[in-house]
Amino acid sequence: MATDESIHKLLDGGRAADILLWKDRNLSAVVLAGATLIWFLFEVVEYNIIPLVCQIAALAMLVIFIWSNAAPLLNIAPPRIPEVIISEHAFRQIAQIIHYKLAHTVSALYDIACGKDLKKFLLVVVSLLILSEIGSSYSFTSLLYLGFLCAHTLPALYQRYEIEVDHLAARGSEDIKRFYKRIDSNFLNKIPRGPVKTKVK
């Protein structure tokens, strides 16, 4: 059974983990409301990204224009835009992380595709087919929002109902193992296979 600290550590700790585990409820609620608003604009209202960005930029420029010209009259400070500078080192680090994750995923999928572990191969193929079916039924924006919603709520729910979830997961795992054994004995073992060649050291 994992403790609160181990779940926090599993999520890489820091501010992101605090938000996902709802340790700061106000900030987590703001993040969820922001994501819901973005989903609503793109999926329900059917806004396109370019007009939305242009309208936000135009509104921001209008506010800055009015504020800058009204500042001397109202004796207030003119607006200052904070400079956000992302270093080259940060970009390289992000690129290296993406490259590592992508290479690891491709390597793992290649090993599974070679058929070394038939159980894992079937599980991945079925999962990909289910994802394909879900992807054809929903838009990309809705899938992104659904993924975000799961990431934003499931860790906190797991932390709260950890014992019940672990019990259900153990039962589900046993049921899946029994089902696989049945399929393996009735169908998979009857598939003819060539002789396995042993490597000469």
Rank of each mutant, 00 (worst) to 15 (best):
N26M: 14
I176V: 14
L109E: 15
E162V: 06
L52T: 13
Q55E: 13
S173P: 04
E162G: 14
D24N: 15
L52F: 11
Y110H: 14
I19W: 10
V31K: 01
F140C: 02
T105N: 04
P78L: 05
F179W: 11
Y110D: 11
A95W: 05
L52A: 10
L188M: 11
S185T: 03
E5R: 05
I50A: 13
R193W: 00
G13H: 15
P72C: 06
K181A: 03
L122M: 01
L188F: 02
Q93S: 15
H99L: 14
K23D: 01
I191F: 01
D166S: 00
L131N: 09
T141H: 12
I66Y: 09
A2E: 11
E133A: 07
C150Q: 08
I97F: 09
E5C: 02
Q55W: 10
A35E: 14
Y138K: 08
H8R: 15
V63D: 05
L128W: 09
T105Y: 14
D24M: 00
V44P: 02
A70E: 00
I112T: 15
L188W: 02
F121M: 03
S132R: 00
S139R: 13
M1Q: 05
A29I: 07
A70L: 11
I19T: 12
S136M: 11
G135F: 08
A151S: 14
V196K: 02
F148T: 05
A57E: 06
A77G: 07
A71Y: 03
H152T: 10
N75T: 03
A169V: 15
E164M: 11
I76A: 09
H89F: 06
F121C: 07
S173N: 15
T36W: 01
T141W: 13
K120D: 00
S87A: 13
T153P: 03
E88Y: 05
D184M: 06
F42G: 07
D4V: 03
H99Y: 10
Y47D: 05
I7E: 09
A170C: 11
K9R: 08
H99N: 15
P51V: 07
H167L: 14
A58K: 04
I130Q: 08
Y180W: 13
I112R: 01
I76Q: 10
L131R: 00
A33W: 03
A156L: 15
E162W: 09
F91H: 06
L128C: 11
K101N: 11
L157Y: 10
E174W: 03
A29Y: 12
R178D: 02
A77M: 07
Y138F: 14
D24F: 05
K199Y: 14
D117E: 12
A35I: 06
I134R: 01
I38E: 00
L10S: 15
H99S: 12
G13K: 05
C114R: 15
L157M: 11
E164C: 09
D18K: 12
R80V: 12
T141P: 07
I134A: 00
I76K: 06
I49C: 08
Q55G: 05
W67V: 09
K23N: 13
A60L: 09
A70I: 02
I163Q: 14
E133T: 03
W39K: 04
S142G: 13
R160K: 14
A16W: 11
P51Q: 02
P155N: 02
T105G: 08
A71T: 02
E174L: 06
Y145C: 07
P192S: 05
Q159A: 12
R193Q: 07
L144Q: 15
I163Y: 15
A60N: 09
F40T: 04
E83F: 00
I19A: 13
L52Y: 10
P78C: 06
